[in-house]
């Protein structure tokens, strides 16, 4: 594959950026469809935070990979094989239980990542992380509250949460995969090797699921490949929709 980027720091930053952009897009799809007005506002709010984080990270990636690309070049002019987000963030919204579980799993991971990135040797990443910690703490709280309500709400909501967990849990293994890029980033002090974030993530998630009367599923299937640009089929449709207008008018100003 051709990332068009040089260096572990750039790829490492781009992975985090793509995670934020794709998750933001998925959450934004809830607009006008949420179960309450308050949650319509909350989901869009989280999506906006994530979009802001993505934009900061793309700007930093462009400096690190020295390609001079704009944030829109990253978002709208790369094909599926060039996106390096994890598979979990691209999973379709499903029902509100699926979105809630996805958000709990993602926000807990992202909060641990941002907390660690506040001490990055890359000052810009550290600055982005400092702001993102506050935002992501709220995202995780929101997901936690809904996990408790739905897990320990009605029989139907409990069943839906179990189904959502069964669907999404296998995708969490990829979050903590270590590879040459993450190892080098860790050695350079750019950011943590995701592997190191697992104990904290696992501790929090299992405690919340336990409080929500939900059981952590067992799964031998550990889908992976997002960090190498190998995505799921629905992701192509998401990008097609997102990129269509931008690509229809090449080079114009919006």
């Amino acid at each position: 594959m051709t990332l068009g980027v040089a260096g572990a720091a750039a790829v490492y930053t781009l992975r985090a950026a793509d995670d934020c952009l794709v998750l933001s897009h998925r959450l934004a799809q809830w607009s006008s469809w949420a179960p309450t007005l308050e949650d319509d506002i909350a989901l869009t709010n989280i999506a906006l935070d994530l979009l802001g984080q993505a934009r900061g990270l793309y700007a930093r990636t462009a400096e690190l990979d020295a390609t001079g690309r704009s944030e829109d070049d990253y978002a709208f002019l790369r094909d599926e094989r060039e996106f390096v987000n994890c598979l979990l963030v691209e999973q379709e919204n499903g029902d509100f239980a699926t979105t809630t579980v996805r958000q709990l799993l993602c926000s807990t991971f992202q909060l641990a990542l941002w907390q660690s990135l506040t001490t990055s040797t890359d000052e810009q990443l550290a600055a982005i992380a400092a702001k993102a910690v506050t935002e992501t703490t709220y995202h995780r709280d929101h997901a936690t509250d809904w996990t408790l309500r739905l897990g320990d709400g009605t029989a139907e909501s409990h069943e839906r949460m179990e189904a959502a967990l069964a669907t999404l849990w296998p995708y969490t293994a990829e979050l903590f995969e270590s590879d040459a890029v993450s190892q080098e980033a860790s050695i350079l002090g750019v950011g943590p090797d995701p592997e190191s974030l697992h104990p904290e993530w696992h501790g929090y998630v299992t405690r919340v699921l336990g409080d929500a009367t939900l059981v952590v599923p067992q799964s031998t299937w550990k889908p992976s490949g997002g960090r190498q640009g190998l995505h799921t089929e629905p992701f192509g449709y998401m990008l097609a929709e997102m990129q269509h207008l931008h690509r229809s008018f090449p080079g114009v100003t919006w």
Binding site: L51, A54, E241, M242
Partner: peptide, 16 residues
């Protein structure tokens, strides 16, 4: 389908 990330952020904030 917003054509730039800036326009997307503005539109999301507006609908919110």
């Amino acid at each position: 389908r917003a054509p730039s990330l800036r326009r997307k952020a503005i539109l999301m904030a507006k609908v919110q």
